[in-house]
Design a protein around this nucleic acid. Structure first.
Lengths: 337, 337
DNA sequence: CTGTTAGCGCTTTCAT
DNA sequence: ATGAAAGCGCTAACAG
């Protein structure tokens, strides 16, 4: 508009070399803190670089070094608070170690995951798969091609370090809580039915049925977001269940809202529990009883595991974090018939 | 563990060339769909590539082509729902165009933004600055070095395309709403006082004071998250204000919660309004009256603007989106003295 | 210690 | 239509 501002010319290492009267190799050494350079010369090079405002092209360095100082993260949905928390801490801790983060969002389409992961991985040094939706066998087959890779919320033994929350334990706690309250007919709103955590929840549910034959635990398909929870409201009332186990807090919140619209009171008419304990769980009406998954800690641990792989190719032992019950206002004894 | 699985050897273009009995240049042409290759030969090369499972190194391509097919996004906090929404749509639309996204989180530290942006930008073809916290002059000075760059939620005219929400208009609507309800003493809980949106809110507040001399609008420093809102509860009660204008929904929610703990009833004792209309706003107790910022749309528009810059170096005209008042339960007439 | 010489893997003139 | 060769910008092995 006003003045034709010139783009700052891109400097090559040879420019600095010429300016300092040395070879490119020397500049490279200096820039990388290689001690085998005469201090006086090094200073001269530093000065030249500073004066010119030079810094090496990460791209060229990456090609020459065979590493990018960048790692990828694949999440099913950037809009999901749980993944966000994990991504956030992963990204911050990685940044602390000088690594950059490339994100990819599969939009909950399991079929796209492999291609996205492969693509992202090729531009980076390693990849974190957060709660991938694809089946175990497919994942196991994919892992070698992605290595170094770490997994969040998938079972260990697939061929990569794992950081996971103990979903079965979470379900156990939730069911115990509901049972103690007196609930006998409970509805589980399944989210991603193909997901690994779904499978583990189901296992925990089966255990509960075994341990407590008086419990009737129903299942209904559902999605993973607000809308899915809201859409399940009719199913809930129809089921005659006195308590519902939502796939996650988002589903629970959507359900809470739809139930309220229908004049169904929580927890007087029906109890609702979520899963994850996202930051907003305490602020719903009523505040949501749920189980807290340490998503941030998982992000940090995932970085630790990946870093380990990157540095020493040692595969960190699986980490399974126990969730903690967060008792709030959305659960109570079932209504008297 | 079980079998010493070999890493799939990394294939170079020359491997494919040899396998197909052609030169690397030809393989390159075929891989890039260059029509000047004999169809028969092309097919032979395709076959060779497919058989070997070859795909070009993005790194080497990037270096040779001078572009990475990757763009950077800098956000103040990956944990903030508004930025998430913007990032999510930006990332998805960019992915739709075959671009990858590198994220950087400045952790709300304005002083780190320039360095982070510069770093991220160097590994990518362009960058999106979401609500950067640094002052205007600093930003204006930085922009040329980041180009191509687009800005979210900063004023236009700094030297980059802008996609922004009309914060002043939002504040105006909120104040009008409160005034009509009968409030005369309102407290504004300022978030990031250096931020551009803060400045625009202040301007709108000044206008309101002018237009409605009967209004007394107080200000108090505050942060940007739950905890900050909660911490402001005492300040709120002390102020004697009958309504509070929170910096954003997070602050409003934190305040709601702290007020509740102190036995202050919203909206009977005091009205509270937020800003942004994050997905959780309808689920607070009481549901939060706020103003809806179309964060997702902004993300999509931001990509459009950046893409335009990348493709044609044309600077898209500034886009300013008007927020819409979302009337819910956290506002009512002030209590009678 | 420092410079010279090869690459890293791909694209792209420039010839043929 | 195809290949040879130069180059993207940097690092590292190899000589001095």
């Amino acid at each position: 508009m006003t003045s034709a501002r010139k783009d700052p010319v891109k400097l090559r290492i040879s420019d600095v070399a010429r300016h300092a009267g040395v070879s490119a190799a020397t500049v490279s050494r200096v820039m990388n803190g290689n001690p085998s350079v005469d201090p006086a010369l090094a200073e001269r090079v530093q000065a030249a670089a500073a004066e010119l405002g030079y810094s090496a092209s990460p791209l060229a360095r990456s090609l020459a070094l065979g590493k990018t100082q960048t790692v990828a993260v694949l999440v099913p949905d950037l809009g999901n608070p749980t993944f966000q928390a994990t991504l956030r801490m992963f990204s911050r801790t990685a940044a602390g170690d000088g690594y950059h983060v490339l994100v990819a969002d599969s939009a909950e389409v399991a079929g796209d995951e492999a291609a996205l992961a492969l693509q992202a991985r090729r531009r980076t040094d390693g990849i974190l798969l957060v709660a991938p939706r694809m089946p175990d066998d497919e994942l196991a087959a994919l892992l070698p091609q992605l290595s170094p890779v770490v997994l969040v919320n998938r079972p260990a033994g697939l061929g990569a370090p794992v950081v996971a929350a103990d979903y079965a334990e979470g379900i156990r706690q939730l069911i115990a809580h509901l049972r103690e309250l007196g609930h006998r007919r409970i509805l589980y709103l399944a989210g991603v039915t193909g997901s690994a955590s779904h499978a583990r929840r189901l296992a925990a549910i089966a255990d509960a049925r075994h341990a407590h034959p008086e419990l009737e635990i129903l299942e209904a398909a559902c999605g993973t977001g607000f809308a899915d929870g809201a859409a399940a409201a009719d199913e809930v009332t129809r089921s005659g269940a006195t308590a519902v186990l939502a796939y996650n807090d988002l589903v629970a919140m959507g359900l809470l809202s739809a139930l309220h619209e229908r004049g169904v009171t929580v927890p007087a008419d029906v109890s609702v529990v979520g899963f994850d304990d996202i930051p907003f769980a305490p602020y719903t009406t009523p505040p949501l009883t749920t189980v807290a998954v340490p998503a941030e800690e998982m992000g940090a641990l995932a970085w630790t595991a990946l870093r380990r792989l990157l540095d020493t190719q040692e595969e960190a032992a699986p980490v399974v974090l126990a969730p903690a019950l967060a008792l709030r206002g959305s659960t109570a004894a079932p209504p008297r018939r």
